[in-house]
Simulated scan of single mutants.
Amino acid sequence: MEAVDLRLALGGRTVLDGLTLAAERGRTTALLGPNGAGKTTFIRCCTGVLEPDAGTVRIGGQAVGRALAGGRVGVMPQDSGAWSGIRPLEMLRHLAGLHASPLPVDALAERLGLHELARTPYRRLSGGQKQAVNLAGALVGRPELVFLDEPTAGMDPHTRRAVWALLRELRAAGTTVLITTHAMDEAAELADRVHIIDAGRVRVSGTVEELAADGRSLEQVFLDHTTSRIRP
């Protein structure tokens, strides 16, 4: 996946300001940035939800619409109110039915602890439980590329570690993964490459080892290259 010079203004505010980055095939790429930096907007441009004012996105050399139509892309949003009344396994079976060779629903649900939620409508799940359902929905179609927007937000440590293990397995199987996260340990554990963005631009990129080569932690590198929205 390659995005080049993406620009987008929403409500009179510049959200993406020449953002350029790539997610290497079969690797995990982490996108870090403060709230409002443009991370979710970037994913929406990469998945056809928003049309950038300028710039291009190519997925495996194809335009976004064509890649999506081919079932090559999975997307995990931060929340999915569209599924409000449906139960988790019903949702997964519906999504699985849209793909030619989906993952086995029961096995995926077992990995993410969803069987115990089988009778609970999506709207009544906790934040972490919704995230687990959203993740399963993004993966059930065996995508070649998956976008995960804060995949472990609200999860307890056990579930978080289980998700990490699953994402490592996806990478080992050749899936391209792009995650946004505020958890520096998550990025350090999972990412082959990290892009730190602020105000709609990439400020610094590299492997965790490259970014921390001078002895700074990844969090300190983040703080040094981004602007706080909170006044001390």
Rank of each mutant, 00 (worst) to 15 (best):
A96C: 14
G61W: 07
T180G: 06
G85T: 08
R231K: 14
Q129N: 15
R142A: 08
A107E: 15
T207I: 05
G154K: 01
R93W: 08
L10S: 10
G85L: 06
R119A: 13
T56H: 13
G60D: 00
T40G: 00
I230W: 10
S205H: 01
G60C: 01
F42V: 01
R66H: 13
A23I: 02
D198L: 03
G174Q: 10
G74S: 13
G70P: 11
Q131K: 10
T227D: 12
G38Q: 00
V75Y: 05
G48F: 11
T56S: 14
A199W: 08
L31T: 05
V133Q: 00
A3L: 10
V105Y: 03
R171S: 10
A82M: 15
A187E: 02
R229D: 15
L145N: 04
E90G: 14
G11Q: 07
D156Y: 13
L98Q: 14
T14V: 14
R111C: 07
R27C: 04
A138T: 09
R111N: 03
A187G: 08
G74F: 09
L10F: 09
V146L: 05
L190Y: 06
S217K: 12
L89T: 05
G174D: 07
Q129I: 12
F147D: 03
P52W: 06
L117D: 00
D106L: 11
R111G: 09
V202H: 00
V140A: 02
A30D: 13
G206E: 07
V204A: 00
T29I: 12
V202C: 04
G141T: 03
S84R: 14
E209R: 11
R203L: 01
S205M: 01
T14Q: 14
R7A: 04
G71H: 03
A22T: 14
R66G: 09
F42R: 00
L218M: 07
L190S: 06
G61I: 03
M76Q: 15
A37D: 10
R231D: 15
D53I: 05
D149R: 11
L50F: 12
Q62Y: 11
A136K: 03
T40P: 01
G18N: 02
Q129K: 09
G38R: 03
A63V: 08
T14L: 13
A153D: 12
T20M: 10
R171F: 11
L125W: 06
G154Q: 01
R72T: 07
A9V: 10
T227M: 08
S80C: 15
I179Q: 02
D198T: 02
A212H: 04
R44T: 05
P88W: 06
A118Q: 09
G113D: 07
L10T: 12
F147C: 00
M155C: 10
D198Q: 05
A100M: 07
A136S: 02
N134Q: 08
V140D: 00
M91E: 00
F222D: 02
G113T: 13
A199I: 06
D5V: 07
A187N: 04
R27P: 01
G12W: 11
G128E: 05
T175V: 15
M1L: 09
L145E: 05
R193E: 08
G128Y: 02
G113K: 05
A69P: 09
Q78Y: 02
G70F: 09
V146T: 07
T175L: 02
L114A: 04
S228E: 14
R231N: 12
Q62P: 05
L19F: 05
